[in-house]
């Protein structure tokens, strides 16, 4: 439970895709001219991350890792290590998933499809998506719920970053900036300053948060944890969306 919450908060604020790892920087700079479009792209990124990270997690653990094919081949699988194929498998899955998501959204939610429009196909080459899968592989999460939480958190962190910079850039239009720095140059410097402010989140460590009573609670209610997780995540999610909305209105 605390572990899941820790991963969630960590992936939004501390290991933020933009401010700590610079992933998805190209679309972050290209699409952040207005708050509305950047919000749309952010939602699409969350959508694809929540699907691709857990699926890639399963692929990694049941197909690619050394000895992962044990369920299929038995003891013969011990010597098989397909992890060198992970780049090509991950990117193929991401491209296929984006295509699939695009088709599903077009069929069942035409209104949302019209809003997201051109952004959905562009996501296949957004490095935040590929990066999330590679980080997931590198950090070795314990189960598929942790991987899903990581995907969701990274997506929300990315949304937060792009909406913030879009709001700032809308205001920057009216300020007097040295001519060569206008546009892309000042966006970089502003992102740098935002990144410094996000460094203040580094001290958060939720794994130290659990008190004694909570500890016993988690050990007792292991099977029920997943339900609890989803509710807290939904709550935290709402809170962050509110924050983003506030930023928008400001």
């Amino acid at each position: 439970m605390e572990k899941i919450l820790d991963i969630f908060v960590r992936s939004i604020f501390i290991d933020n895709m933009i401010f700590a790892y610079f992933l998805g920087m190209c679309s972050y700079l290209a699409v952040s001219k207005t708050v509305k479009t950047s919000f749309g792209l952010g939602i699409a990124v969350i959508f694809v991350l929540v699907i691709t990270v857990p699926v890639n997690y399963l692929l990694d653990n049941y197909v690619l890792k050394a000895g992962a094919l044990h369920w299929l081949l038995g003891d013969k699988a011990a010597g098989i290590d397909l992890s060198f194929l992970s780049f090509i498998i991950f990117i193929a899955l991401i491209a296929a998933m984006t295509q699939l998501v695009e088709m599903i959204v077009e069929k069942f939610a035409p209104a949302l499809y019209n809003q997201l429009g051109i952004f959905l196909p562009l996501i296949a080459v957004n490095c935040a998506i590929m990066g999330a899968s590679l980080f997931m592989q590198q950090r070795g999460y314990a189960n598929v719920w942790e991987a899903t939480t990581f995907g969701l958190g990274s997506g929300i962190g990315w949304l937060l970053a792009i909406v913030c910079i879009a709001a700032i850039r809308e205001k920057l239009k009216y300020s007097n900036i040295p001519a060569p720095l206008r546009g892309i140059g000042i966006s970089f410097i502003v992102t740098g300053l935002m990144s410094i402010s996000f460094m203040s989140f580094m001290g958060i460590d939720l794994s130290k948060l659990k008190g004694d009573d909570k500890k016993t609670e988690t050990t007792q209610s292991v099977p029920a944890t997943t339900d609890e997780n989803t509710t807290t995540i939904a709550e935290a999610d709402l809170e962050i969306e509110e924050k983003a909305d506030n930023l928008n209105s400001k």
Binding site: A179, R182, F188, G192
Partner: peptide, 27 residues
């Protein structure tokens, strides 16, 4: 060494580059 510095550094390099190539300046 921090991530923030690289962002600001790119901003400064772009500044210097555009100050030299004036036709690249955005309106």
């Amino acid at each position: 060494i921090m991530p923030a510095a690289s962002l600001i550094l790119v901003g400064l390099i772009i500044w210097a580059h555009r100050a030299k190539n004036k036709d690249l300046i955005e309106k």
